[in-house]
Amino acid sequence: MSDEQETQETTAATVADIEEPTAAVPPSTESDDVPVAATVETADTSASDAASPPPEPEVDPEPKVERTAEATPEARLEPVPVAADATKDAEPVAAPSGGRPASTHPAPPPESDPTALDPRKRVPPVYRANQGPSQSRFRPRHVATDVPLEQIHYKNIEILSQFLDRQGRILSRRKTRVSAKKQRRLKTAIKQARHLALLPYTPSHIRGRR
């Protein structure tokens, strides 16, 4: 109990000068049990609360130091995964695929996620974006799509010539919008007509240049 009295005296005495008695007194009294740093901390942390008996501050300050030491790395480590989780949650799709440290790279997970989870939601807008101009570009220019199949033969040059472009090339089915069967007949008919010189392989103004 003499220790308590001494500490109380020191605390009371050291209202003006805190450092000197605390540094001076404890090593003399508590040199066996308490390390120096602990006693200094007890005196520093609580001048008024230090009225508690010395064995308790012996126990407390050490784990406090340890806790603070542990708490700071935890605090340093924790906000990073929390931030990563927040970014993952903030992204539209939940991230089961995110084995990555995806917080630094926000771009790859949205690419990998829709394809893995539901490709139908992400793909259509891209597909529409590509198809928008293409529809206008490849709208069927030839109304001869309704040509009866019987009329597609190599002698019917008037019809066959509608399926050639200005260079004499056979128009693709994407442009002609003809059924596959008719397009096949058109192909053979045009090639037969070319063989007989009923249709040109290439336009004359190009052929004449040498």
Partner: peptide
């Protein structure tokens, strides 16, 4: 008939 392209320097033919 007129040939769509010359064959052997000929531009016409009997079909």
């Amino acid at each position: 008939r007129k040939l769509a392209y010359p064959i052997d320097k000929k531009t016409e033919g009997h079909y």
